[in-house]
Design a protein around this nucleic acid. Structure first.
Lengths: 231, 231
DNA sequence: TCAAAAGTGTTATAGTTACACCCATGA
DNA sequence: TCATGGGTGTAACTATAACACTTTTGA
């Protein structure tokens, strides 16, 4: 025990931060939540929501803490994506950062704090980001594109009740590609995770679509089996 | 610039290590390379190959360094998998570790150093591991199972020239499931990344199989397009 | 009555699964 | 000549892709 402590004390130590890439969906666009950087050096640039990791805090908790502190929400989807370690990525010296992705429903969350000009930016057009945050955003976006095709993450970005058009718009925005409407519907109905609420869209200047909910419970009970080699 | 440095100096600092999960394939089994732990506390337990991250070293380089130091190889497949941060994962105090997966061809690498009883262990049966290394191994194994179905990583574990039986044994071992031989062959021939060397197995007590090479160049030129929602 | 999006089905193609026999080799 | 694994094809099934018209609503 003593030698373990001694060994650890001999290690170089590095400051650790977490950066949350918080995706949202609004106006048929994938958005990401950013603030103005705290640093004078980056005062005109946009920054991911980050903070250093507290002592004795597991990094997942740090990420939830950042979310809570910045947005007031904590019941959201959150997953570790990748650790970034370029020695010069922070102008103040070496800082290692662990990127987390979070997806949150813009409608269900009016931002309470607007410190540092916190607001949503279009993922496709954002530039001028602080640190290596653009690289982090790009990796998280690629991660999201892949993940959303394997897991039903997308529903975290939508209102609880949504139309199939909204769902398809979300997929088209994230994957940046048009899809066939009939095949899209067929696919999702075949999965059988959509609950027909019996409700319809309102206030739309055209025939209202049915509203559905995602059946998280049924999905949780089902085990996805991986199969098929494909590359 | 000054305020940036000041800010960073105010952060808590954490020792960082990398741990390499080095997979190999031998005797139709997936193996992992382990050593006896350095720590007295874990003297009967097996440990992944790790080391602390040097100052000003990007973590990918730390992982390559660990590989080189422990095995003498550096032209191998290596990828970051996940960062582990439980505050009590190391008995000497908080240590954060970044897990990397490496795949290396056992035949092409006779271990030069055998310090700390370095040797290959069967992934399926290993237990009694130091720290949280069993958890790390499990996550890396799950990662490998998924990855190998999407990318041709497996070839890094085989001799340069291999028979289709060896290739199938590898997939069956990693995915832990039997596959149909005819369909397996059809699949790989259809991909068209196998080069027929014109050579045959030798010293086998049955009809010798053809030996193939993987066409890394052709694969590199091809871009995989992701398509299809599936969960 | 018009504009706009909802809703719906079929056909062709590609991929996946399941399955059995003959062949080449060394012992 | 035997044991062992190599090598091969087909048929049923499932998933995917392409494609156009009618319906409902609000303005």
């Amino acid at each position: 025990m003593k030698d373990a402590r001694k060994l650890v004390e001999s290690y170089p130590r590095v400051p650790i931060t977490v950066d949350c890439v918080i995706f949202g969906f609004d106006e048929n666009e994938l958005k990401v939540l950013l603030i103005r950087s705290d640093l004078e050096l980056f005062k005109d640039k946009w920054s991911l929501l980050g903070d250093f990791a507290d002592d004795n805090e597991i990094l997942d908790d740090s990420a939830y803490r950042v979310l809570r502190e910045r947005t007031g929400m904590d019941d959201v989807y959150l997953e570790q994506v990748k650790t970034f370690s370029k020695p010069n990525r922070h102008p103040g010296g070496r800082v290692l950062t662990v990127a987390y992705c979070s997806l949150l429903n813009i409608e269900h969350h009016q931002l309470k704090k607007m410190d540092n000009e916190l607001h949503w930016h279009s993922v496709k057009t954002i530039k001028d980001m602080a640190f290596d945050h653009h690289e982090i955003l790009n990796e998280c976006y690629a991660w999201l594109q892949k993940r959303i095709q394997e897991h039903p993450l997308g529903f975290n970005l939508l209102p609880e009740k949504f139309s199939l058009r909204e769902l398809q718009n979300l997929y088209e925005a994230i994957l940046d590609r048009k899809m066939d409407r009939r095949n899209f519907r067929k696919k999702f109905f075949a999965m059988d995770f959509l609950i027909d609420t019996g409700l319809y869209e309102d206030d739309v200047p055209h025939r209202p679509g049915k509203l559905y909910q995602f059946d998280f419970k049924k999905y949780g009970d089902t085990k996805k089996k991986w199969s098929g080699i494909d590359f």
